[in-house]
Design a protein around this nucleic acid. Structure first.
Length: 271
DNA sequence: ATGCGGACCTGTTAGC
DNA sequence: TGCTAACAGGTCCGCA
């Protein structure tokens, strides 16, 4: 489900509800996510106040005086604010209940997501410490990507989805950005020219910002914290459109696999 | 160091 | 209609 815009949308939706709220209790229904949810969470978080919520890549960080809760939504996760006593469903693995009775609930059918705890600097946590550039930051430039891509043979699409280089870009937005920048997704990262990287970075920022504005992309099951879908799907130009006409030139879009991920592009527009 | 395939899961859909 | 296989928004790990 979630790439950067969906995670950002999730954070914006829940932030106001949980900021400066005191935790009453934590209920773990299934600890078996990507890594086991720490069993001490209820003891640790009871009476703690969430002072801040922030996003790093696709990770969500919730700060308390004692430490930081680290959440990842994996492929199918979502986080919602629910009224008191909302009955849990099959894939509702974690509830954080606040003293105002609202519930922050993590749902994740495929359980590729994670919920971890650190009492140190969260940015030094093993999951976060090697993360690359934030794509919406000033540091993320064509020159940066060009430099990191030198000598690299990996396909530019795989390179864009490598979180050690740049975070938050998943299969949807990689395909969309490469289409916008007219770059063939198979091109080795080391062969993409500086000016192409500049166009690409501009496209990535534009697309991510536009998607956040639309509340992210809902394919089938992504809902934000209020239970509403995101509308960026309506703007997708290649993702999910294999064999349909290119919106620029009408050429039938090609669907291939790159790094085990389905990839759609236009052989005419993307050279 | 790099690059690739496999692994972790469940749900939905396409195809026979 | 019903079964099976393939595929899905992520990313870590181990092996060549």
């Amino acid at each position: 489900m979630p790439e950067l815009p969906e995670v950002e949308t999730t954070l914006r939706g829940i932030e106001l509800h949980i900021k400066n709220q005191k935790i009453k209790r934590v209920i773990i229904r299934n600890r078996n996510l990507r890594w086991p949810i720490p069993s001490h969470l209820n003891k640790t978080l009871k009476d703690q106040v969430i002072t801040n919520g922030l996003r790093r890549g696709k990770y969500l960080l919730f700060t308390t005086a004692k430490g930081t809760l680290i959440l990842h939504l994996g492929m199918s996760g979502n986080l919602r604010i629910l009224p008191p006593k909302t009955p849990p469903q099959k894939h509702d693995h974690l509830d954080i209940e606040f003293t105002n009775h609202k519930i922050l609930r993590l749902t994740d059918p495929r359980r590729f997501g994670a919920c971890l705890w650190t009492d140190g600097d969260p940015l030094n946590h093993f999951l976060l410490k090697n993360l690359g550039c934030e794509p919406l930051s000033k540091d993320f430039t064509g020159h940066f990507l060009f430099q990191r891509g030198q000598q690299k043979k990996v396909a530019i699409k795989t390179f864009l989805m490598d979180s050690k280089i740049v975070v938050g870009i998943g299969n949807i937005y990689a395909a969309e950005a490469l289409f916008a920048a007219r770059i063939n997704p198979n091109t080795p990262a080391g062969e993409v020219k500086l000016h192409q990287y500049e166009v690409l970075v501009t496209a990535i920022k534009k697309i991510l910002r536009a998607s956040i504005k639309q509340g992210g992309t809902t394919l089938k099951d992504f809902l934000h914290s209020e239970g509403k879908p995101g509308y960026f799907k309506l703007h997708l130009k290649v993702y999910g459109r294999g064999n349909q006409p290119c919106l620029n030139c009408k050429t039938k879009l090609t669907e291939i696999r790159i790094g085990q991920r389905s990839t759609v592009y236009c052989i005419n527009c993307q050279k």
